[in-house]
Design a protein around this nucleic acid. Structure first.
Length: 424
RNA sequence: AGAGGAGUGGCAGAGUGGUCGAAUGCGGCGGUCUUGAAAACCGUUGUACCGCAAGGUACCGGGGGUUCGAAUCCCUCCUCCUCUGCCA
């Protein structure tokens, strides 16, 4: 959520930023924010005045009662009735105003930074880096959804039986490869200085609002209505919310966490032929990195996080590219996002396997995640996160790119973790 | 899950209807003293909002209520502790 003070001081920047995102009615929305905020200030001012008056009368009554001047006290009591009604009215007006302002602010996405390219959608994303070459596969190369059947390593039918579509069952060498990747990704993160976290994978409503999944992406998360809990769509949510309502000492910065969790996404209405096999699932595994930084350092951190993810892809010997997402394709909460895509040779298609973002103060504002500056005042910190990595599409790429008549070759770095070098 | 107890500032802990944003201790910060440090002593020490400022308002687990007035009374939810039950 953007800060009203920031919107006030940077009106032009905010409007042009929203336009870059293809957010409709930017100017009108911002004007409405300021108008509501003016009304809020005005109403609060009046409300406070009435409360001050009524507090002062109450004190007088207290004094008179102590002195035993009951009649005089009763006289003053009569005067408080009007004030009470007035303050109730103003209080309700103030609440309405604050609520309306909050709801409006919830609809406004983060402002893209200056290095975010113009563009309306995925086609306008900028390829900023490419690495590796496409492996030459034989004529009879198979897409991964055929390979998993051939080697019997993932069973979608069993998942259908146990749960439903999009909940695959990993078996035998498939299950072991999953476990190997998780351990490899975690170990690499530990080497890079991340502190491991095992968070709950069920979160409450406050956490959903804290990182911005609510109310924007309500309906994308599985909801447990009995307790009003949600299944996490990413470890970003519980790990970042560890720092909700926290004031960090600058000496504690930067915070660097890594966590492995299953992730759950309803993916409502996004099914079709292009999401076959492992390309899109309701439950999948992901290792996530989360960082918290002083505003001055967050973009250097974003770059390092990208490099970390790229390093993983290179160790896995996958062909990949890095995209600087354009304004129209970025997530709601992000100020800048780099996507990493691996090339899936049998599908002849780029698959997104990681998304690394700097949210600047957008999440921190909702989280109330702050530090005390040298000016001795509170300031919002910057939050960042990235997948390092999401497993299913990595698995799809490994299966497709490393297939041959002898089976599927496991990348060298994973062999110590799997205990085998080929899926047969 | 049942019965009982409890949630107060960074921490510990007082406060059962008015002068309480809240005693006291510890910790933190500034100072005196000292070659330096410790000790001792003095001062200071929450957050948000409104206001140019003076100042004002709100916050004692969350929400609601009673009252002229609530940390204090009532309702409700959450969390923790003890006992009983259940369970990996």
């Amino acid at each position: 959520m953007l800060q009203v003070a920031y919107i006030r001081e940077n009106r032009e920047k905010v409007v042009s930023g929203l336009n870059k995102r293809r957010f409709g009615n930017a100017a009108e929305t911002i004007d409405k924010v300021m108008e509501l905020d003016d009304l809020r200030k005005n109403t609060q001012s009046k409300h406070d005045q009435v409360l001050a008056e009524s507090n002062s009368l109450s004190k007088q009554i207290g004094g008179l009662m102590r002195e035993g001047k009951k009649e005089e006290a009763e006289e003053i009591k009569k005067k408080t009735a009007d004030l009470k009604m007035e303050s109730k009215q103003l209080g309700e007006e103030l609440s309405r105003c604050e609520e309306e302002l909050k709801q409006l602010l919830y609809t406004i996405p983060n402002i893209p930074n200056d290095n975010v390219p113009e563009g309306a959608g995925a086609d306008d994303n900028q390829v900023v880096y490419e690495h590796g070459t496409t492996p030459k596969l034989s004529e009879n190369a198979l897409p991964h959804w055929e390979l998993i059947k051939k080697y019997d390593i993932i069973d979608f039918e069993l998942g259908n039986k146990i749960t439903g579509a999009g909940f695959p069952v990993y078996k035998g060498q498939g299950a072991r490869l999953q476990r190997a990747m998780v351990n490899f990704f975690l170990d690499e993160a530990l080497k890079a200085g991340y502190v491991e976290i095992q968070p709950p994978i069920v979160i409450n409503e406050d956490s959903g609002y804290g990182t911005g999944q609510l109310p924007d992406k309500d309906g994308q998360m599985y909801h447990i209505s009995e307790e009003n809990f949600f299944l996490i769509p990413t470890a970003e949510v519980p790990i970042t919310n560890l720092y909700r309502d926290v004031i960090l000492d600058t000496g504690a910065l930067p915070v660097k966490h890594v966590g492995f969790t299953p992730c759950f996404r309803r993916e409502a209405g996004s099914w079709g032929a292009h999401v076959r096999g492992l390309n899109r699932l309701h439950q999948f595994d992901k290792v996530e990195i989360v960082e918290i930084h002083h505003p001055d350092n967050s973009y250097a951190a974003l770059e390092r996080m990208c490099k970390h993810v790229q390093g993983l892809l290179e160790k896995l010997q996958l062909q990949y590219r890095v995209l600087n997402l354009c304004g129209g394709d970025m997530g709601f909460t992000s100020a800048q996002t780099f996507d990493m895509e691996v090339f899936s040779a049998a599908q002849q298609k780029w698959l997104e396997v990681s998304s690394v973002s700097n949210f600047e103060t957008f999440q921190a504002n909702r989280l109330k995640l702050r530090y005390r500056g040298e000016d001795n005042k509170m300031h919002l910190l910057h939050t960042l996160n990235g997948s390092a990595l999401a497993l299913p599409r990595i698995l799809a790429a490994i299966l497709e790119n490393n297939q041959s008549d002898e089976g599927i070759k496991i990348p060298d770095v994973l062999v110590p973790y799997t205990g085998f070098d080929t899926i047969r």
